[in-house]
Amino acid sequence: MIQLRQLCRDFLVGDQTVHALDHLDLSIDKGEYLSVMGPSGSGKSTLLNMLGLLDKPSAGEYLLNGTATSGLKEEQRASLRGGHIGFVFQSYHLIPRLNARENIELPLVLAGIAPKLRQPRVAELLARLDLIDRAEHIPNQLSGGQRQRVAIGRAIVMEPDLLLADEPTGNLDSKSGLEVITLLEELNAGGITLLVVTHDENVGARARRRLHMIDGAISRDWQTDSAESKSILTAKPLTGKPLTQKTDGKTPGAF
């Protein structure tokens, strides 16, 4: 489904060139469940942005479903994002003036789908995400976990093939974090390809395939038995504080 060939992404910081991605090769099959871990600045988020067509490589090629993406125009990239890729962000990125229902509905609205077709789809998702009685609340009136569930609803409402989650549990307490991760795993079980970037060992360990990045390259790429990874979690329940330190300072329990 996804193939990265010698992918590079360079940033200019001052007069120094930083190789955020350094000749990276990666192949992902449909339906995989990957986690990407590594220290800050190792290129995890850059990789995610690259896979999500939010960023363009400096060199190398990215094939999505067999299509070379480097030659595509911004309009075509936008259309690929809209139809095939769902994003879940650490800080949710919900639109503050829209309520939960409207936030979930947004991609359908932007894609120009008729209201009649939108309503049943959104209603179904609200039920599945356990947000029915929160549907008319704006993000400020929702808890972190609820917000992230709204964001996941928005990410999957267009039924994408690929779901990219950047620190999805980063701003959440352990209970909500577990709920969100479980939800993402359920979606993966339904066939969607899932890639989670995280700082949290416990979250990262749940993935069947784990990537570890250092200095813009993949330093380790290994498969784990899903049963084994789950058993790790049950043996070591999550503590009250998330390990991540990337935070907007609003979330309770964060630094």
Partner: peptide
């Protein structure tokens, strides 16, 4: 700005 980024991530083309 972040809303515009989001709209673009959700597949909205520049002209829209």
């Amino acid at each position: 700005t972040s809303e515009i980024g989001l709209l673009k991530a959700l597949g909205l083309p520049a002209r829209t």
